[in-house]
């Protein structure tokens, strides 16, 4: 490990007794939302959300436009607060700590909870400077360490071979799919605990999409991933668990194969079979 990441084994142990949902797995819970509500002014966007996400899993959030899935994933690193007039209620526990607490440092939270956005958003800098941005803002200055981080992150994002000879070129010269993988590398460079992905492939072509989906399977070994997707086939292909959001409510949260093959709720069935949405 190049950057020091706190080992939280004590918390892992403590988490054991919390695992009581019907979809129990042996993995530790990393995020738990408890009666989480969110308002944009008067608009009640998320209603009594109760969900738990586990380590080393890919959890997908699906649902029609405006169902609150992006709002929810942005609540997990509190990026949702960039919208003026947001009000929240309830709890979101990240490794047993309520991230909505006043004393929670958002800078610290966002270091642990990385995010990949819908559209590739590299900085207008070189590939190297893009990937080393995170470590640098957290105080890593040593050139050798930065070199190692950049290489490791680009390898993890499966783009090292494509860019290793032009690390000093502007990231804007790359294709959309490559830019998105640079953005993933940039997020991984901070060595987060969990990676949030907000429709990461919706702006990409099918081949780039497949590359990123394969990449997610690799990343799952070291990271936990929560992905919001508009694409139901994608959720079915990549995720272990799937949550179906509808009109600000979680309708159903279960193992992905159950959601797609044998959903308990009529609305989930209608949505995954393409009857609406």
């Amino acid at each position: 490990m190049i950057m020091t990441k706190e080992k939280t084994s004590a918390i892992h142990l403590a988490n054991k007794d919390l695992e009581s949902s019907p979809t129990v797995t042996q993995n530790n819970e990393i995020f738990i939302a408890k009666n989480f509500n969110l308002w944009y002014g008067e608009n009640h966007a998320l209603k009594d959300i109760n969900l738990s996400f586990h380590e080393n899993e890919i959890s997908a959030i699906i649902g029609p436009s405006g169902c609150g899935k992006s709002t929810f994933i942005k609540s997990l690193n509190r990026m949702v607060e960039m919208v003026p007039g947001v009000l929240t209620e309830g709890e979101i526990l990240y490794r047993d700590k309520n991230i909505l607490d006043k004393d929670m440092s958002v800078e610290e939270l966002r270091t642990k909870v990385g995010m990949v956005f819908q559209k590739p958003n590299p900085f207008p800098k070189s590939i190297y400077d893009n990937v080393s941005y995170g470590p640098r803002i957290h105080g890593i200055k040593d050139k050798k360490t930065l070199d190692l981080i950049v290489e490791k992150s680009l390898r993890q994002a499966a783009i090292w071979d494509e860019v290793k000879d032009r690390l000093n070129d502007n990231a804007y010269g790359l294709s959309g799919g490559q830019q998105q993988r640079i953005c993933i590398a940039r997020t991984l460079a901070v060595e987060p605990d969990i990676v949030l992905m907000d429709e990461p492939t919706s702006a990409l072509d099918p081949i780039s999409t497949i590359k990123i989906e394969d990449l997610m399977q690799e990343l799952k070994k070291e990271y936990s991933i929560i992905i919001v997707t508009h694409n139901m086939q994608q959720a079915a292909r990549v995720s272990d668990k799937t949550a179906f959001f509808y009109q600000g409510n979680v309708i159903e949260f279960n193992d992905t194969n159950i959601i797609f093959e044998n959903p308990h709720d009529k609305r989930t069935e209608d949505y995954v079979t393409g009857r609406f949405g």
């Binding site: 990026m79 958002v106 800078e107 966002r110």
Partner: peptide, 13 residues
Amino acid sequence: VAVREASIGMGAS
């Protein structure tokens, strides 16, 4: 906004 989000999202102040 996208590049601001990218920076803020990595824990930059």
